[in-house]
Structure formats: structure tokens, C-alpha cells
């Protein structure tokens, strides 16, 4: 030991003499230290849970014990579970209801409020203000609107002697009710994204169009819309990823009912894993959701990339 310690300074010196210019870009193990903090959190908070979730999905496990290996048993159970299949459809239906509406209303609001007047500034703030609320407050507000007999909607319908539609309990309206609350809540972000895109369109193009006697519709179709195409796609991607994860609104407004018609996949996972303690089945359902979001995100990515290339 003592010999080795005595030897080492000489060895270093010898190396230093032979290679005076060390390649500072050469891979060195000690560089791992620089990425270690990131790797630590990435592994413990993302990679490990991801792999553990996969492992769990092949086991019959409950909240307090991990049981036997069941292979694809949990996935087979999901395949035969009508409620799970219903929840997948519900999630897609919800995305279909909210994403196009959010994009179109967001665009419409941005077009209307893209002015330098004080009213426009106030209205922009107002429309964005709902986004800062938590999901609990949002659902509370909309429950007060939708609640039968004493709700805002019932009161307004009552003035005309009509009965308000039952947005929380009617099977065909419950998801629409949740979508309305969600659109009201989420409209701020698409509007802001569109506004910023609109403000980046060079004014001289509009001046040229005005000189060419183009009317408003022509200007919108030929100048504004093509100029914000990329933002439009961005809004769609962001909203698809966001709305796929529907949970709070459905849980707080309808508890997934009536007859599981508003139960999204995340709520199904919560129900199975945490309320029925069937952790293996919940983990399997999470893997399916993971794949669905992955496919949706990849599809969007491919579409954007090819369109980007063409442009």
C-alpha cells in the first residue's frame, strides 16, 4: 500500500511529460459527477416508478402487498372490463369535445381582442383569469351553475317557465357539462398563444393587402390563418396532452357517473388502484394510458414535422 502511494506521483509526472496537451473533450468517468444530480432524480422519480409500474402490471398486487406474477392476466381482465373500455371511449369523446372547441374559441377571442384598446386589455385579463383557478374552485362554480332547482341555470330557465337541462345527471349531457366547465377553465392559454402569434405577423403584409383592396375575409383566410398555422398545431398538441389526463373535473362534478359515462381512464385507474386496492390492475390500466398518450404525441409530432418540412 505504502509503495503504491509512493509510486503514484512519479507515474503522474511521467504521463504529464509524454502528453502535455490532454484532450479536455475526451470521455472521462469523473464527468458523470456533473450529470449525477439530474440522473439521480430522473432515475428515482421517473425511471424507477415507470419500470415499477410495468412490473406491478404483471402482478396481482394490492396497496399493502405485492403478490404473485400473473403474466398478462391484468391486461386480459382490462380487455374484458366493460367499464374500462367505456372509460377509454369517454376519454376520447372528452378530447373530441374540448380540443377543437378550445382551439376555435381561443382563436376567435384572440382575433377579437388583438387590439390596443383598454377594453380589449381588460377583456383579455378577464378571459385569462379563469385559468388561475384550481380545479376545485372551477368545479364548485360550475356545480353551482348546473345544480337543479337552485342553480344559476335553473334560475334563468325558471324566468321563462322552462326546466333547465340536467348537465350533471343526464346521461347524454353529463360529459358536455364537464367539457363546458373545462373549456371555461382552459380557454386562457390558447387565447394567449394565438394572441402572441397574431402580434408577430408583420403589419406591412396587411398594408399591402389593404392596397390590393382585399376585404376582411380575404385577409383572414390568406394572411392571418396561414401565418399562425404552426401556433394552431401547437395549441392542438398541448390541449390533447392536457385533456387526455382529465380527472379532477369528472371526479368532483359527477364522480364518473351516471353509469360510468363520464369516467375517464385516470379516474378508472384511481378507482381500481386506490379505492379497490387492486394495484396490479390499476398499473396495467396506467400502462395502456401511457401507450395511448405516447401514440397521440408521436402522431402529432410526425404530422407537425412533415408539415414543417413542407413549409
Amino acid at each position: 500500500m505504502a509503495d503504491r502511494l509512493a509510486m503514484s506521483p512519479t507515474a503522474t509526472l511521467a504521463v504529464g511529460v509524454r502528453a502535455p496537451t490532454a484532450d479536455i473533450y475526451a470521455p472521462q468517468w469523473r464527468n458523470v459527477i456533473f450529470v449525477a444530480p439530474f440522473l439521480f432524480f430522473f432515475t428515482t422519480l421517473l425511471l424507477f416508478p415507470l419500470l415499477w409500474g410495468m412490473w406491478l402490471s404483471f402482478h396481482k398486487a394490492d396497496t399493502f402487498s405485492s403478490g404473485n406474477f400473473v403474466g398478462l392476466g391484468n391486461y386480459a381482465r382490462l380487455y374484458h372490463d366493460k367499464v374500462f373500455l367505456q372509460s377509454i371511449w369517454n376519454t376520447f369523446y372528452f378530447v373530441l369535445l374540448t380540443v377543437p372547441t378550445l382551439a376555435l374559441i381561443g382563436l376567435f377571442l384572440a382575433l377579437c381582442l388583438n387590439r390596443r384598446t383598454r377594453t380589449a386589455a381588460v377583456l383579455r385579463t378577464l378571459f385569462f383569469s379563469s385559468s388561475v383557478l384550481s380545479v376545485t374552485i372551477v368545479t364548485l362554480i360550475w356545480r353551482i351553475v348546473f345544480i337543479p332547482n337552485v342553480g344559476l341555470l335553473s334560475t334563468i330557465y325558471g324566468w321563462f317557465g322552462a326546466t333547465a337541462p340536467a348537465f350533471i345527471s343526464d346521461p347524454s349531457l353529463a360529459m358536455v357539462g364537464i367539457a363546458i366547465a373545462t373549456i371555461w377553465w382552459c380557454i386562457g392559454l390558447p387565447m394567449m398563444l394565438f394572441l402572441s402569434a397574431l402580434q408577430q405577423i408583420p403589419q406591412d403584409i396587411y398594408e399591402a393587402a389593404a392596397l390590393d383592396n382585399a376585404n376582411r375575409w380575404q385577409t383572414l383566410r390568406s394572411i392571418t390563418l396561414p401565418s399562425i398555422k404552426r401556433t394552431f398545431i401547437l395549441v392542438i398538441i398541448i390541449q390533447i396532452v392536457l385533456q387526455f389526463q382529465l380527472f379532477g373535473q369528472a371526479w368532483l362534478m359527477t364522480r364518473g357517473g351516471p353509469n360510468n359515462l363520464t369516467k375517464p381512464i385516470v379516474l378508472y385507474i384511481y378507482d381500481t388502484a386506490f379505492r379497490r386496492w387492486d394495484l396490479g390492475l390499476g398499473a396495467a390500466a396506467s400502462e395502456i394510458l401511457f401507450i395511448l398518450i405516447l401514440v397521440a404525441a408521436m402522431a402529432q409530432y410526425l404530422v407537425t414535422r412533415s408539415r414543417g418540412d413542407q413549409a
Binding site: I147, P148, N149, V150, A166, I168, S169, D170
Partner: peptide, 17 residues
């Protein structure tokens, strides 16, 4: 009564509905 949740049903009963 239809379409009432728990809180709504208590209010309805107390209102004599």
C-alpha cells in the same frame, strides 16, 4: 325527485318538496 345530489335532496326535503 330526480337529478338531486345529497345536499340538494336535503334542501328539497326541508323546503317541503
Amino acid at each position: 325527485t330526480k337529478d338531486l345530489d345529497y345536499g340538494g335532496s336535503i334542501n328539497a326535503f326541508l323546503a317541503g318538496e
